[in-house]
Amino acid sequence: MKLLPSFTLHRPISLNEALKLLSKLEDSKPIAGGTDLLIDLKEGAYKAKHLVDLGLIRELGNIREANGLIHIGSTTTHAQLVASEIIKAKAPVLGEAASLVGGVQIRNRATVGGNLCNASPGADTATPLLVLDAQVTVASLEGSRSMPLSELFAGPKRNSLAPGELLTEISFSVPPACSGASFSKLGRRRGCTLSLINAAAYLETNGATCREARVAFGACAPTPVRIKDVEELLKGKKLDNQSIKEVSSACYGLVQPSTRVHARASEEYRREMSCVFMKRTLMEALDRARRNMQ
């Protein structure tokens, strides 16, 4: 049994109040669902004298659609993503990934912002959001800024936020009708494991030829990553079983799994699996793109 170290919990009700607390208090950390943070504190992975709870800040917990963009507040839980009509209709791939995070108890607490900020190489919502080409909005007392999601990840379990900054929102364009996206994940036991590998793919097609392709892997590099080389191989190609198989086999040499970072499976195994998972996700994405066009 490992005890939680002592800390003071602050529970602001507005974003501004939270930002003030984070900049004023030394040794402070935001806490959303706490499903990563409390475990890291128990393990002594880091120390925090002050925790600033984001759970009461209403403005951070919504999903909305406006002007062709979908906006997801950072404290939206995985359960909310799964239940959201907007996500089901416009970006089902994200709801699917969220539905595979932990068990129901975890999904009811854990947030998408926490999943991204925790920056685990295998974070399950990272890959679908990467292929949706998501932007993240970050706020501090100085104001707010936007950047591509990929720039939030700095290394295994390291994000690029400066002290006092908070992730407030994730946003992406509503995918067009000629597109399809899919996610798949390999884990040891459903309900309580991080992915050994996960993959997401997004395709736009005019029926036969690939117009736009975005693919991403989790747990195959120090951070979740887009694989631009595979995307280039896909663009302009006639999409079928054979071409997808060929392109997918290129993943073997393109991913950089490290056994040091991802001790749960060997490098060779992950390389093999990256080809299998890329093929599977691309086939499914293509199938969906075709169905969406009908």
Binding site: L9, G34, L38, V104, Q105, I106, N108, R109
Partner: peptide
């Protein structure tokens, strides 16, 4: 597991003041 506002959560990962 307990129900917190009617949904299941693991009470080991919820802080009492929450």
């Amino acid at each position: 597991t307990v129900l917190l506002d009617e949904v299941p959560v693991t009470s080991c990962l919820v802080l009492a003041p929450q």
